[in-house]
Design a protein around this nucleic acid. Structure first.
Lengths: 196, 196
DNA sequence: CGATGTTATATAACAACGTTACGATACTCT
DNA sequence: AGAGTATCGTAACGTTGTTATATAACATCG
């Protein structure tokens, strides 16, 4: 056999992904170059190519990291006896995650790195975080909080609203934090009332 | 005075903007380089810098072109006696414009060109197309179709929903055209019912 | 334990990128 | 007609993504 060196291998992978995230967060997408990432990790550009194949491959890992964080944020939302409150808490978690990791949110939904376009295959991982939302919607339907409807279709509506609001807020179109929170509250109040 | 040459000047401007649009639409953001644009227009990269200052300056023109098209699509929506129908027609126009110019839509609301970040000043032009939406919301409130509310806040909710749905549809997450249309209908039915 | 084969990674090169300095051209105005 | 200035082609600089090459480090076999 050749040269596994499994330990350092995984460490280097993580280091490169983390360095990419830091670069993206601190200096924006233009600073996310293979050289900068390699330099920040104390290695050379070749590492990116042997470990990820491409710059796009590295960015793809940062992309799934973004969805992993979102999934973690969703998983941390407790399930109480109130399905509607749970659903709204999911919305808050979505917003909090986007505000805490704006660069990853952008990477997930705004395509800031021209080399990287999320593959349709990546849709499956997105889907798995989406399922948490669908389940919460299903509970609302079962509990009679929402009118009889396909939970999947309901989830699409809430997802669209959440993403639309995040998009506006990150662009600064929702005013300060207090105003933004009010927009969120009103929007989900109206939408969930319409779904009842 | 210097060397106006107003005629060719404006023509060249338009040609460069159009070439950029074609390049972006046909080959994606990675192909949108000053050299490609200049070559497609039969000129050289310097033209971009003397006419727009920057690559970002050229992209900014494409950006406002996107909003001009959206404004034109909004302006083409007739105002009938039914305020709610008018509002929904505005939503359809928004969707149709996004599907007809997906690359411009991406430029307006995502961030496919790292060099270009919409200036806060550009917000004013966005605002002017947003105002058409606000006016339609105000008519719904006045007519009693919606409950008493700040038309601006209502418009934010509809805007967020529309953008969220467009974003999902352009990503292919809304199924085929028929399914997507059904999602749109259901989403706005629920939201406008909740606003009543 | 030393030789060998295989892999990981640094070095250096390539084409293409955004940008700028420089010169030449083509126009407006006196 | 002459003078002055904005436009724009040429060519260069540094940086980008990527790849070919070469070296170094490890696992296995003799």
């Amino acid at each position: 056999m050749p040269r596994p060196r499994k330990r350092d291998y995984d460490d280097l992978r993580r280091d490169l992904i983390d360095a990419g995230g830091r670069l993206l967060a601190d200096e924006g997408p233009a600073a996310l170059s293979t050289r900068r990432v390699a330099q920040a990790t104390g290695t050379s550009t070749t590492a990116v190519y042997s470990l990820f194949g491409d710059k796009a491959g590295l960015v793809r890992e940062m992309f799934v990291e973004g969805f992993d964080r979102l999934a973690a944020a969703f998983a941390a939302v407790p399930r109480t006896g109130d399905p509607l409150a749970d659903l709204l808490a999911l919305g808050d978690a979505y917003r909090a995650n986007a505000l805490a990791n704006p660069h990853l949110y952008e990477l997930m939904f705004a395509r800031p790195v021209p080399e990287f376009r999320p593959a349709p295959e990546a849709g499956r991982r997105i889907r798995s975080t989406f399922d948490a939302l669908v389940a919460a919607c299903a509970r609302c339907v079962e509990a009679g909080v929402f009118a009889e409807a396909d939970p999947d279709a309901v989830a699409v509506q809430l997802n669209a609203m959440a993403h639309g609001l995040c998009s506006l807020e990150l662009r600064g179109a929702l005013g300060d934090a207090a105003e933004a929170r009010a927009h969120w509250r009103r929007a989900f109040a109206a939408l969930t009332r319409g779904l009842a």
